[in-house]
């Protein structure tokens, strides 16, 4: 485990509860395409920042903020400018 006091950058898995407040589907498995580099991956694989204020989910390849959520007393503000598409598919049966 990380040394005491050391910080870890979490990933989109840890934003799953918040994402379920925003989306009607499980967005952690939703293929999401980054505006910055064009790569597609499930939101679970994005890097998570600022969970204290909402969630900033960044592309692990190019650092582009793909999903931005601000948590306020009047609701959740969603900014998806960083995603060209989010596919709301049923989880693929592996």
């Amino acid at each position: 485990m990380s040394a005491e006091g050391e910080r870890s950058t979490l990933d989109g898995n840890a934003a799953g509860g918040l994402l379920r407040e925003v989306f009607a589907f499980d967005a952690t498995v939703a293929p999401t395409t980054c505006v910055g580099c064009g790569r597609t991956r499930p939101m679970a694989e994005l890097m998570l920042y600022a969970i204290e204020l909402g969630a900033i989910l960044r592309c692990p390849s190019c650092d582009q903020p793909v999903v931005r959520i601000g948590r306020t007393s009047r609701g959740l503000w969603l900014d998806l400018r960083g995603a060209t598409t989010v596919v709301a598919a049923d989880p693929a049966t592996p």
Binding site: R68, I69, S73, R74, L76, W77, D79
Partner: peptide
């Protein structure tokens, strides 16, 4: 950045302006 995500445009702690509309 945060002001576009529902945080207050000015953010005065003494008036507790945390979020848009506070």
């Amino acid at each position: 950045f945060w002001e576009s995500l529902g945080y207050h445009i000015y953010g005065d702690p003494w008036r507790e302006q945390r979020y848009d509309g506070d």
